[in-house]
Every structure is written in structure tokens, then in C-alpha cells.
């Protein structure tokens, strides 16, 4: 399949101690392993099985993902920001690939 493409939405700035909302979405078919092809053969499972979000190296939020999550997995969660820094987002594919992206935020 085409290389998975992550998207994240993080506010550019926040007040110290503010709880912000983060939205993430990655393009991925999330093949569940439950479907069969035209010949009746089971299409092997291929999903994003894990997501993590870190801020300046500290864990913020994580998710273990099962095949029941829809195609193009969407995750929305919150983060408390106390200082300026960088969020790092990682998606882990069954095939071993890791898709990463990061976003900076300025705390005023």
C-alpha cells in the first residue's frame, strides 16, 4: 500500500499548565484479518497496532490498537503543557514500520 501518512493538529501556543486537545489521523487501511479476497482466502491482518505521544521525551498518551479500529485511525486526546517544547508522535505498523512526526508548541 501507499506509505502511511500521519497528520496531527496541535495548537501553536498555550498558557503554562493549560490542557490542550490534540487530534491525530494516519492514512492506513487497517486490514483486520477478518476479510476474505475474491478467491475466498483470508486477507492477512495489517494494522497500526500502537500509537504513542511524548512531550520533551516524557510519555503523554499511548494507545494499543486492535483490528476493530477503523481505517485511517483517528485519535483525539489531551495534553497538559507546562513548558515550550516538542511533541513526538509515533505509529507502529504490523509490518515493522514506524511512522513518526513531531510538532512544536510555545508556552507563553
Amino acid at each position: 500500500m501507499a506509505k502511511a501518512k500521519p497528520r496531527v493538529k496541535v495548537p501553536k501556543s498555550a498558557k503554562a499548565g493549560e490542557v490542550i486537545t490534540i487530534k491525530t489521523l494516519i492514512s492506513h487501511k487497517m486490514e483486520s484479518g477478518q476479510r476474505k479476497d475474491k478467491a475466498g482466502k483470508v486477507i492477512p491482518r495489517n494494522i497500526i497496532n500502537k500509537f504513542t505521544c511524548e512531550f520533551n521525551g516524557a510519555k503523554v498518551f499511548g494507545c494499543d490498537i486492535d483490528p476493530a479500529i477503523s481505517a485511517n485511525p483517528y485519535l483525539e486526546f489531551t495534553a497538559k503543557v507546562n513548558e515550550s517544547g516538542e511533541f513526538k508522535f509515533s505509529w507502529f505498523d504490523d509490518d515493522g514500520s514506524v511512522y513518526e512526526t513531531s510538532k512544536k508548541i510555545e508556552v507563553k
Binding site: 490542557v19 490542550i20 483486520s32 512531550f55 516524557a58 510519555k59 503523554v60 498518551f61 494507545c63 483490528p67 476493530a68 479500529i69 477503523s70 485511525p73 483517528y74 485519535l75 483525539e76 486526546f77 489531551t78 495534553a79 497538559k80
Partner: peptide
Amino acid sequence: TELSGKASATTRMR
């Protein structure tokens, strides 16, 4: 984690 600020999350499921 404490850095989550709130224990809330949204996703889409099958």
C-alpha cells in the same frame, strides 16, 4: 499519564 491533563480520548471503531 499525569501529562495527559485529562483522562479523555476519542477514536473511531468498527
